[in-house]
Computed example of a mutant assay.
Amino acid sequence: MGKNNFWSPYIAGIGLGLTLLATFYIMGKGLGASSAFSIVSAVAVEKINPEFAGNLRYFSRYLSTASPLKDWIVFEILGLFAGALTGALLSRNFQIRFDKAPGMGGTTRLFTAFTGGILIGFAGRLARGCTSGVALSGGAQLAAAGWIFVISMFISGFLFAAIFRRLWS
């Protein structure tokens, strides 16, 4: 098996579709990810400063659960990590690496990656859902917002890829 032993996108797409269908059927909800991070953040802030966490209206809905391990969405994220790791190991594509542009320093790359992660996490919660929740679950329900988002995401992805490609060459 070579270095490019990737899964067929058709098989992966069918698997994702069946997972989404099962999630709707079993849990009554579609796939998503950002609320798991909100749950874990709320519980962590409560452990550090219970009074502060209790005064935040945003965290109140997440603190009603006694433990983050009682919410299925946290297990979805753990399963996502485990599944991705298993897939990479089985296809012999797993490697730990630090991708960055040739002219970019390690500190700059870590700063931009961390800042980008914070911004996208904040934007996902501000939008009341992440890309997987809006695109996959919304699109599967034929919601106009889901399809508008997917089309906008692809258009902006193509535009910004052309702009930012210069930074990585």
Rank of each mutant, 00 (worst) to 15 (best):
Leu90Asn: 01
Leu20Cys: 13
Leu85Asn: 04
Phe114Tyr: 14
Ala162Tyr: 06
Gln95Ser: 11
Glu76Trp: 15
Pro68Ile: 10
Leu63Tyr: 05
Val134Glu: 06
Phe75Lys: 00
Phe59Val: 07
Ser34Cys: 07
Val40Trp: 08
Arg92Ser: 10
Ala12Ser: 07
Phe52Ser: 00
Ala135His: 04
Gly129His: 03
Ile39Arg: 00
Ala12Thr: 13
Arg97Pro: 00
Leu63His: 08
Thr23Gln: 13
Ala22Cys: 15
Ser38Pro: 01
Asp99Val: 10
Pro68Phe: 12
Ala101Met: 01
Leu16Arg: 00
Ile73Asp: 01
Tyr58Asn: 09
Met153Leu: 15
Tyr62Ser: 07
Gly17Phe: 14
Ala42Asn: 01
Ala53Pro: 04
Arg97His: 08
Asn4Ser: 08
Phe6Ser: 09
Ser35Trp: 10
Gly32Cys: 07
Gly106Phe: 08
Phe160Arg: 05
Phe114Gly: 05
Gly30His: 04
Phe81Val: 13
Ala127Met: 11
Ile26Ala: 12
Ala66Asn: 15
Tyr62Thr: 07
Ala33Gly: 14
Ser8Trp: 01
Ile77Met: 12
Ile26Lys: 11
Asn5Phe: 11
Gly157Ala: 11
Ile48Ser: 05
Gln141Thr: 06
Tyr58Trp: 10
Thr131Leu: 02
Ser41Thr: 14
Thr65His: 03
Ala22Met: 12
Gly83Gln: 01
Cys130His: 01
Thr65Arg: 02
Lys29Ala: 09
Thr112Phe: 13
Phe24Trp: 05
Val150Trp: 06
Leu31Trp: 02
Phe24Arg: 14
Pro50Thr: 05
